[in-house]
Amino acid sequence: MDTLVVNRLRKSFRQGESEIAVIRDLAFSVTKGETVAILGKSGSGKSTLLSLLAGLDAPDAGEVLLEGVDLAKLPEEALLKIRNEKIGIVFQQFHLFPELTALENAAIPLELRGDPEAEAKARAALEAVGLAHRLGHTPDRLSGGEKQRVAIARAFVSEPAILLADEPSGNLDGKTGEEVMDLLFRRVRERGMTLILVTHDEALAARCGRRVVLDHGSIVTS
């Protein structure tokens, strides 16, 4: 069964007088539990594609079907719910709330949906990424690798249908990056989760089940 289906997806941006097509008639699908690496040079449209898949931005045309629901056609309220419950995102820059502790950062998605067990689940998620001893630490007291582990815990805590990761090891040194990616893939495997990973790193891409290479907004290899 396909978790994600992308159909004739188009997106362009205006730059002054001219319009630049960033995503051109893109189509692909990802089945449940599949891991897909999206590769491409800078400016190939990787991040734009990720924002469309996450429902963070609306396409000009085409469909993004997540578990059969077209994100492009959903009203804002429903989209928020999908984003909160079905999609997990891990950013290159971690994007943790600087004033919140690791535990609070991980609990945020559950708190947003009013889950009374948010804290307990967040604690479990952090324990699962090996941060049981860092629960009360704010991001400024965590190392880069620890920050990304918190971000992974936050992405997993709501048990999403799909995990989107944007260069998750891009801001980490080689060894730490490797450890964090091991963790990410292990967790994805354990949960049977669908993963879409945007990366420059060929070695990392090789760990995924499939590679999609983007060039000027089109798939050149899949």
Binding site: R83, N84, H95, F97
Partner: peptide, 16 residues
């Protein structure tokens, strides 16, 4: 700003 954008990313509405 960043916290606000991040909250929107994880599913918070603009009004939240």
């Amino acid at each position: 700003r960043r916290s606000a954008l991040l909250l929107r990313t994880v599913g918070a509405a603009a009004r939240d």
